[in-house]
Design a protein around this nucleic acid. Structure first.
Lengths: 191, 191
DNA sequence: ACAAACTTTGACTCTTGGGTCAAGATGTGA
DNA sequence: TCACATCTTGACCCAAGAGTCAAAGTTTGT
């Protein structure tokens, strides 16, 4: 009963996340979402009070899943190894599973105010995973950066757009290695 | 006569580029564009057959203008100096004038073939400016990269998203210096 | 001054999309 | 089987926005 409802909600959120990821907030109608689920628009309103609410929930689900998986990576190894593993995994998820999710996180200005702040919160948690490793590497002298924030922002920007031009494992590794340059670690270096 | 028409068209494209740059394709109506020019929507249809056509032309204007400005930068100096200048100028334009340009360049996926190829051509020309300096720096041993393409892609991704989190001159400089790390040049180094 | 060409208007059509809701369909439990 | 709760539907409302067009306004050349 309550479980069934949960599954239904989940299915809706998955469909919504895919579509909004592909075409952005204004580019997707609730009819589109309903069509993909083979139901009618009215049905969606039984579960969500508005388009905004649906979209917020969809982003939240996607963002939470994503961060969970990054946090689940092994904590062993040097900062260099761990950062590289994080980058690889992040790019892999982006490329393989949410190839179009980028627009969702990319375009906060377009979204209603309430949604914006929740996305920001998600991002912060996501960001913290990378920040922790980066700062550890800095303390240990393993990494060098101009400043922490722009470094993280640049990493995320590049990873978010990766699906546009990265398609195979080699591309994933190359991009991860390229981004390691941002912390002053060259590809050959096994610090 | 023909000149007058050209000026009018340019005025429309400028207004359109600004608006679409701010809020994206779906977020701007032709009424919005008309309002900014103190004319009515019908008037725009005298110059452009459709919203798509207007937007494509606006993107072309924006892209051409942008690349022109990068190409106009002084050619003197080492690759390091020139690349840094390019990055700074690019970020400055993105942050100050076309905060949502990225969005415009991402939309084309579903657009008609003709418009898409024009935009692709723009991108290639834009990319070539950076590629030339990067390759020169590599030949001279000044730069080190994992691979040229992911490096350029990462740079552009970061710069395109800069408007989201960069707001002042200090941020612009920091980001430019951060991106120099991608080619193996640390902030302090004046190669 | 006048006609021809050019430009702008505003009212109009049509479609799309967010949101509502009463009525029907499908369970679920006793 | 009956009653109650849980979905689902499809018709409907309303607003916004793309696109059209005849008529009015403005230039321009002669």
């Amino acid at each position: 009963m309550a479980r069934k409802r949960g599954q239904r909600v989940r299915a809706i959120l998955t469909a919504a996340a895919e579509l909004f990821g592909e075409r952005g907030y204004a580019g997707v109608s609730l009819e589109d979402v309903a069509d993909r689920l083979d139901v009618t628009k009215g049905s969606l309103y039984y579960y969500f009070a508005s388009k905004d609410e649906l979209v917020t929930a969809a982003i939240e689900t996607l963002g939470t899943d994503w961060t969970d998986r990054l946090e689940a990576l092994p904590v062993a190894g040097s900062p260099t190894e761990r950062l590289r593993a994080l980058l690889r995994e992040h790019i892999r998820i982006a490329v393989r599973e949410y190839p179009a999710a980028l627009r969702m996180f990319l375009v906060p200005d377009e979204w209603p105010e309430e949604q914006r702040s929740r996305i920001t919160a998600l991002r912060r948690r996501h960001d913290a995973v990378f920040r922790a490793v980066l700062e550890e590497g800095l303390r240990g002298g393993e990494f060098t950066v101009v400043a922490v924030d722009p470094t993280l922002q640049a990493m995320h920007a590049a990873m978010s757009q990766a699906p546009v031009w990265v398609h195979d494992d080699r591309g994933i590794d190359q991009l991860a290695d390229t981004l390691m340059m941002l912390v002053g670690v060259s590809a050959g270096t096994a610090a």
